[in-house]
Structures are given as structure tokens and as C-alpha cells.
Amino acid sequence: MLLAEGLRHAFGGVRALDDVSFTLHPGQTLAVFGPNGAGKTTLLKVLAGLIRPGGGRARLEGGRRAVGWIGHQPQLYAHLTVRENLRFWASLYDVPDAQRARREADLLARLDLNDHADRPVRALSRGLVQRVAIARALIHDPRVLLLDEPFTGLDRTAAEEFRRLLAEQAAGGRVTVLVTHNVEEGTELATDVAFMRTGRFVQLAPRAGRTAAEIADAYRLAVTGG
């Protein structure tokens, strides 16, 4: 369960978050669409607990242990292998060895990383690195997923597999907040859709079966027209 209440935050003189509120229950996926500089990344950071908001509060059931994060940067150690990275990050979340081994095998297989599992991360291409980042985010079985443009660098097949993974996560009761400026990528998975502009949610509504095209139209209207 994820709760945001009246979130406010400013950097210098710029209002990055302006009274953002919403509640998410297990199984919900919120897709936040907005142009660059709308405050999407700041929102995620506040939800994750990386930034303490200037006003309002965010609450995440399970605390930091329950958060899986995929952001612009992969958060991996270039000189360590894929497996070593996964092992390290899992250890910080106190994942028992047996469980970690199982999840590791499963994620490596699904993200088609088995051939690269013992190569150092710096030897991998951007697309592969993104896949490893996804594995890193999921290795500790997080209940809340905070995703910032997670499809960047993924090819068609990888993106498909990732979508399937996310759908499974949601079906398993995970809460997901997906932030992106690309309406096509996020729509399919979303149960709820929000449009964000200059720190505010200009619209927050259930997806209600709308297609990507319909949402794209609504987005354009809300963000450029309003």
C-alpha cells in the first residue's frame, strides 16, 4: 500500500512537487505521464524515501525493504559480474541465500541474461545493462516498484518480457508507480493514469479500458491545453 498526502517540494525557487496526493492498493499500477521537468523523478524519489519532502508525507508499507527501483542509472558496479552484482544487492536486503539463488536463476532466464551472467557489467551493452538493472530491482522480491523510464534501451523482445514480468508482479499484489514521457509504453500495464505538469497532477483517473491512443489524446489536452 502506498500513500501520498499533499506532497510539496521545491529546489531553489523551482516547485518540483505541488500538492500531490494519491493512494495505491496492492495490484494497482499507476502510470504517470508528463514532460521533462514536470517533477516525475522527484515524486519517485520522495516516495522511495530518498528525499524528504518540504511538505506533506509519503508512506510506503514495508519501508525501504519493500522498494524496488529502476531509474535512469543502473546502480550497478561496473567491475563486478552480473551475478556478483545481484548477490551483493540481495545481501543488502537480507535475502536468504536459497531464495536469492532461486530468484536469480528465474530472473536471469526470463531476461535472457544466462549467457552474460558471469561477465563484468562494464562489458555489456546498454540494453543488456538495463536488463541487469531490472533483475537487480526485482531480486529481493519488492512489494512496491518505482520505475523511472524503465523501458529505455530495451529492444522489442526484452520490453515484451519486462511487461510480462510487471503484469505478473501486479497480479501478485505488487504496487507499481511507472513514470514515463512515452504514453505507448506505460498504458497497457496501468490500472490508473495520471498526467503531471510543473509538479501537479493535472489529472488522476482509473484507466477504465482506454487505449493508448485515447490516453495520448487526453494527455495532450491536459498538459498542453490546460
Binding site: 561496473a78 544487492w89 543488502l92 536486503y93
Partner: peptide
């Protein structure tokens, strides 16, 4: 080392 791939953020996110 921690800044290369923003691993520091990862450390700060971890419990």
C-alpha cells in the same frame, strides 16, 4: 566508485 552508475542512490535506497 559509487558515482559511476549512481550506485550510491542504490545504497541509500537499501534498508
Amino acid at each position: 566508485l559509487e558515482l559511476e552508475n549512481q550506485a550510491l542512490d542504490g545504497l541509500l535506497l537499501a534498508p
